[in-house]
Design a protein around this nucleic acid. Structure first.
Lengths: 303, 303
DNA sequence: CTCACTATTGCTTTAAAAGCAATAGTGATT
DNA sequence: AATCACTATTGCTTTTAAAGCAATAGTGAG
């Protein structure tokens, strides 16, 4: 018996919920599916599917087996692809997931260049601040703010992700320059929001953490909109240096510096990481993209 | 093409290093192997094996593919077994690996009872202090001193693994009771050896670690032998409480207590863990053994 | 209670491995 | 350097297993 084929048939039946539909999807007669699945069940000595003419559903073991087998199928597919594409030119669909802000501001412009260099790679970009697992999901490369990845995943630090406070010159003129971190409590706050909530203004003075957040006038997970608000003098904003650098350079915003540095979390080593599955680095398209992104960002942003 | 069969053929060829030997092992003509492996290579578009009439060896991709595929085969075999044995009585070969000392002193007596309870389970016990990976190796259950397992492996704490210093009454009479930890430096030392070397006597005094090891008169990885030496008054021994408790109870050895506790590593939370692969808990024999061991040890040793 | 749809089964056809014998190539040995 | 022994491969036939088709039996909805 070709167990692999039987498993594929079985999976399709589970996914479509019907032998007939699965048969159409696979372009084989329903009788084949029926027979192969029956073979599989016989060889396992267990009933995987509870069938009636109207409805097909998984048994308890069937559910367990389906889950296991799904993982095995993807692993096998990946191994096959690794070998197939080994020492060939980079090509095919490359799926990249990135944090929204970083994606819009830095990654997408970079990938435009990348596409010119490797026209045979079809990019599939998802921007989201929710963290994807990078295991089950078919994401080749993920870019995330500093969190610890698991052992199968390799993480490369792309750049710092420290937050800095800024305000427009107009705002400072009107409201005065805060003389120290504590004074921020009296200022209008524009807050960046992560999936785990708005980021407070924190300050570490002599080993003690203080929350120096001022009254909020705007909260969003969209950095650009917040930066606009800051530019028009509505308040003080804390965001990442890379998100703000263009505004600072043009003079629209200016960095506020204090004796005691500000932060948005007590966890100090915040950074942007590029993540990929170690074994997938052998796939040319993945290797090409990882190398390209890491290299360009090293050159352009880590002055 | 039956890819699974092709992969099995391929693997056998790799393992035996020869098409002919593999063919004998599998009871099929060599031509079948040759053809199936060729099919596989064609479908992958890569050469997996470098053949000459005398020698067969893996190419670079072949090596990668072989490693990947090995894992997939074991996973599939395990999934199959899970289903096959689902809700049947515990039976079959159960492979357990344990630290030597713990195995001899605690586990094996326990497993004698287990065998009576589940006569259909054939036990396969390996005692070793080297740590096995529990992934590739076909070990169902492993018992190890506190180290962090990976995500797929579940760890259950069986008992503490703290080391205590002991000496025989005769030794104390002859050499005097050490008045504090520092005084140990003047005493004869009997040292337990782990794979990473002999275990020193360490003492944390006011946040500072001191090595208070005395001159060694015996070093071994065999706890029983060391305990005998300690009983005959040759020196002071540090070993685990569970290894020494019987001697202490009989009065052959007595525990030395100090103001500042002794240890053999700066890492404090030493413990004995039972490890198993999460998904394998569904296999009755594994579940039976895990439940049995954890339960018995909870009842008997965690007073 | 009937109808429509579905999974299954018996039978035939088709495809793909197994099996066997012969061939060609390679590395060690003399 | 030439032969020898052994091995992987290939051509061909046989065997096996899956595909394909048509007919059947069973079940849930209306």
């Amino acid at each position: 018996m070709d167990q692999l084929r039987a498993i594929r048939y079985f999976s399709k039946v589970v996914e479509t919920g019907s032998f007939t539909k699965a048969a159409n999807a696979l372009n084989v007669p329903p009788s084949s599916l029926s027979r192969r699945v029956a073979d599989l069940e016989k060889s396992l000595g267990a009933t995987l599917l509870k069938r009636s003419t109207r409805i097909v559903k998984l048994t308890e073991v069937g559910q367990i087996y389906y889950n296991d087998v799904q993982q095995i199928l993807t692993q096998l597919a990946q191994s096959n692809e690794t070998v197939r594409s080994y020492q060939t030119t980079p090509m095919g669909r490359l799926s990249i997931s990135s944090m929204v802000g970083f994606g819009e501001k830095i990654l997408l412009p970079l990938l435009d260049e990348f596409s010119e260099l490797y026209p045979e790679i079809i990019l599939d970009i998802s921007l989201s601040d929710e963290l994807s697992t990078l295991g089950r999901d078919d994401v080749d490369i993920a870019i995330r703010g500093g969190y610890a990845p698991n052992e199968r995943v390799l993480a490369i630090k792309l750049m710092d992700n420290g937050f800095i406070p800024v305000a427009s010159p107009e705002y400072i003129e009107t409201h005065g320059l805060p003389c120290n971190a504590m004074a921020l409590k009296e200022h209008n706050g524009i807050y960046f929001k992560t999936p785990s909530g708005p980021t407070p203004w924190l300050c570490n003075m002599n080993g003690q953490w203080h929350d120096v957040s001022g009254p909020a006038i705007a909260i969003s997970n969209n950095g650009t909109w917040l930066a606009k608000k800051a530019c028009s003098g509505e308040g003080i904003l804390m965001s990442t240096r890379w998100a703000l650098s263009s505004y600072i350079e043009s003079g629209q915003l200016q960095e506020l510096k204090f004796e005691h540095e500000l932060a948005i979390t007590q966890n100090s080593n915040m950074a942007v990481y590029l993540l990929y599955q170690k074994q997938r680095y052998l796939v040319p398209k993945v290797k090409a993209a990882v190398d390209f992104i890491v290299d360009k960002i090293k050159v352009r942003y880590n002055f």
